[in-house]
Amino acid sequence: MSVHPTPSGWSEVSFEDRMALVDFRLSSRAHITVDGDACRGCTTKACVTACPANLFVPVSDGSIVFNYEQCFECGTCYLVCDESGAITWTYPDGGHGVVFHKS
């Protein structure tokens, strides 16, 4: 028997629940948009796994469906993306977007 039981007493929360704990002040303007057509030729699809908020969803025709609402505004996506013009990235309007409390 192993002396290291697999960590017990807690189970990973679902990704949805994880994001539901974060305070997002929703703006009507999408501060980031993704041109799904530009993504069709992309072989890395790096945004899909790198985005900490998991907002890039690949669809069967090779493009990407993106929802800006639960975004940390970190900048990872535009830095890992090699496809010119695929991501248009701005900050949300003042006062909107993510608000951290215990960070």
């Binding site: 704990l21 974060v22 960070s103």
Partner: peptide, 26 residues
């Protein structure tokens, strides 16, 4: 992060603790 929390040297420190905020930054 889940991998780190499950490491035998880390698990005893954080076991059972409840997630209250998740965040990311460059």
């Amino acid at each position: 992060i889940a991998g780190l929390k499950a490491h035998p040297a880390v698990a005893p420190l954080v076991e059972g603790a409840e997630l209250t905020e998740y965040s990311a930054h460059l």
